[in-house]
Amino acid sequence: MTRPRLVLVAALPLLLTACDGGGDPVQQVLLETSSRNQSATVVEGAVSGPEDHSAHDSGAPAATPGAGDVAFAASEAEMHRQMSAASGATVEEAYVAKMIAHHEGAIAMAEVALRESRDPEVRRMAQGVVDAQTREIAEMRAWRPATAD
Rank of each mutant, 00 (worst) to 15 (best):
A146Y: 14
P120E: 12
E104P: 03
A132Y: 08
E116C: 06
E51Q: 13
M109H: 01
R81D: 07
R115S: 09
R141H: 10
G59L: 06
G59I: 14
Y95L: 09
S35D: 05
R118S: 15
V29P: 00
T17F: 06
R135N: 09
V7M: 09
T17W: 01
D149S: 13
Q127M: 10
Q127A: 12
V29R: 12
A18V: 04
R135D: 08
V70S: 04
A126M: 05
S48T: 12
A11I: 10
V122N: 00
A142E: 12
D119T: 07
P61E: 12
G23F: 14
A18N: 06
V70F: 01
L16D: 00
A63D: 09
V47R: 12
R124S: 05
V9C: 02
E51H: 06
R36D: 07
E139I: 14
E92C: 06
V42D: 15
D119W: 15
A11D: 04
P25L: 14
L12A: 04
S117C: 14
E92S: 13
A62N: 10
Q27E: 02
S35N: 07
G59N: 14
C19G: 05
H56V: 07
L15Y: 04
A55I: 00
L8I: 05
G105Y: 02
R144G: 03
D149C: 03
W143M: 04
L15T: 05
E111Q: 15
M1W: 06
P65T: 10
D149Q: 07
V96W: 05
R124N: 06
I100R: 04
R5M: 12
D131F: 00
A67C: 01
G88E: 10
V91I: 08
